[in-house]
Amino acid sequence: MSEESAALAPSPAAPPRPAAAKAVRASAAGGRNSLARLGPLPWIGPCIALILLVVVWPVVEMVLTSTHKISGLGIDFGFNGIGRYQKLFSDPRLGTVMLWTLVWTVLVVGFTMVISLALAQLYNQNFPGRKYTRWALIIPWAASVIVTSIGFRWMLDEVAGVLNRLMLDLHLIHSAQNWTGDAAHSKPWLILVAVFVSLPFTTYTLLAGLQTVPGEVYEAARVDGATTWQTYLKITLPLLRPSFLVALVINLINVFNSFPVIWGMTQGGPNTDTSTSTVFMFILGQTDVGESAAMSVVNFAVVIAMVLLFLKVSRWNEES
């Protein structure tokens, strides 16, 4: 290479000075330390923001609304303190509503758990067509609850209902019955429909728990001479307890808060005879939004108590 070409060639970059390199490393380390101080916040931050937006904020608004006198038309007459709570607890209908809510929740959850446990045991066995029967069980879960409720209401209709037509043809009744016209007739049907729409989730939850039980445990029980009933009581039920508790608590919350079944079939009537606390809350909101919000606060407190009970039971289950 000539001297002229060598002169035109770019000279190699000078190595960075030690002080500059040290400053760059310190800056990078400082950025990493700042990010490390945040911990998991950048990842869970959006979730926290979503919870604040869709859970905490509505709860705060609900509590604030319960301290105001607001008409059914939305006219705010100002701060009323605990006046809406006093009106709610002096309402003669509240005692009947809360008693029916308790009966409704206990019966629906109780029947659902017992029937779902039997169905889960059935679906855990090998038999022809098991796949199709499992698919069929999903139908009440996949269909809209309000659509299912309205379908049952029309089936029970006094004039056009298929149930009356069938029972008349079989001479089981002498005249058409209004199955949803009074509380005595409608309450059993409400419980039946609520159990019907609750079975799929509960059954699949228990079925998942059954399929986690190792087959070796049953084999060891047979070798030890345990009977089928002893195996079920001493092995299956204890190992199924985590799934059973999850299904139980979620059903309690869902059934307690259930609105579509009752509203779709009876709208809480006649009067408020078939209204649970959730339906009663909606009915109150048509005339007094503040009292409805007070009922919402009471319902929210009950749900929180259920959640705390679930956490306590879960901790007991883990310790066991």
Rank of each mutant, 00 (worst) to 15 (best):
A221W: 01
V289K: 04
E219G: 03
A6W: 11
K234W: 03
T133S: 11
V313W: 04
A226T: 03
V249R: 10
A176F: 02
L309T: 08
D157H: 08
Y123D: 00
A36D: 12
G215Y: 10
A293Y: 09
L38T: 00
T212M: 12
K131V: 13
E318R: 09
F201V: 06
A23N: 04
A13K: 14
G30Y: 11
T236A: 05
F127K: 05
L53A: 15
Y123A: 13
L53T: 13
S296Q: 09
P16L: 11
A176I: 06
N178P: 07
E319F: 07
L8A: 04
L168Q: 03
L94A: 04
L163S: 01
N178W: 04
V55W: 13
E3I: 11
I70F: 11
G161P: 06
L119V: 05
P42Y: 02
I304F: 01
Q86R: 12
V246Y: 08
Q125N: 02
D182L: 00
N257G: 03
D182C: 04
L239Q: 13
F79Q: 14
T287I: 13
W189I: 07
I75Y: 10
T133Q: 09
G225S: 02
V255D: 14
L8G: 07
P270H: 04
Q125S: 12
L94G: 05
V223D: 06
S116V: 00
L245W: 02
V213S: 02
I138V: 12
A184D: 13
V109F: 02
R84V: 05
V289D: 09
